[in-house]
């Protein structure tokens, strides 16, 4: 099943036979796949096929009914909520379709947000956040509240926030879904460059067949099941 991972031991994501149901709805059924370190994998499928549910399972937002999920060599199915949170803090970044920025915090503070519970000096934290904003081309927007930013700018802040903990895996759920095509293209280029230049593993849910062409590999999903595609 997982012939795509040559060395499973060093894979970024290894999913084996996971299933999830909500009542009679079965959005994820017996799914297995593997993602290598530094890979860019897209997950495509029609609306309602279970992509977001699968992503939530892998990121530890939710527990599968059965099966095993190994992230960075660690089995996460048995972890409790706090252990999962700490796992995400340590090695996972997340980019949402609708940003999920804290409305009362400035762009800089939003980027630093995941580090608030972490004991690091405020100066270092702010420097890290500022340099990420610079990298996202938002040097001049550090003090702006999310409401004062455009959609593309908000998504850049979200990406900067996802990177502030130096994750090895970046999960994205339709990161360009709420953006116009030009802005979407810019955001996508940014993510691809993170993958290519910094070796961040990129796992992206998308509707957009164009995006799949940029990725190393695509997983197709249909009625809760994953079919492989190169």
């Amino acid at each position: 099943m997982n012939e795509k991972c040559k060395k499973e031991a060093v894979s970024a994501i290894t999913v084996k036979k996971i299933s999830k149901h909500f009542g009679s709805v079965k959005p994820v059924q017996n799914v297995s796949f593997c993602v290598e370190q530094g890979e860019f994998v897209t997950l495509v499928g029609s609306s309602g096929s279970g992509k977001t549910t699968l992503l939530g399972l892998i990121a530890g937002f939710e527990k599968p009914d059965t099966g095993s999920i190994v992230l960075q060599g660690r089995e996460i199915v048995a972890l409790d909520e706090d252990q999962l949170a700490l796992m995400r803090r340590k090695s996972v970044g997340f980019v949402f379709q609708d940003f999920h920025l804290i409305p009362t915090l400035s762009a800089l503070e939003n980027v630093a947000f995941p580090l608030y519970p972490v004991k690091i000096p405020e100066k270092e934290r702010n420097e890290r956040a500022q340099s990420l904003l610079d990298q996202m081309g938002l040097s001049g927007r550090a003090d702006h509240l999310p409401a004062k930013l455009s959609g593309g700018e908000r998504q850049r802040v979200t990406i900067a926030r996802a990177l502030v903990n130096k994750p090895s895996i970046l999960f994205c759920d339709e990161p360009t879904g709420n953006l116009d095509s030009t802005t979407g293209k810019e955001i996508l280029d940014l993510l691809v460059s993170l993958n290519v230049e910094q070796g961040v593993t990129l796992f992206m849910v998308t509707h957009d067949r164009e995006i799949t062409k940029l990725s190393n590999r695509s997983l197709y999903m249909q009625d809760g099941e994953v079919t492989y595609h190169e």
Binding site: A59, E81, A85, R89, F96, L101, I102, F113, Y116
Partner: peptide
């Protein structure tokens, strides 16, 4: 609260 959890805040945080 969902965002906090998603970006790695623990229940206690």
């Amino acid at each position: 609260i969902g965002t906090m959890k998603a970006v790695g805040w623990t229940g206690a945080d």
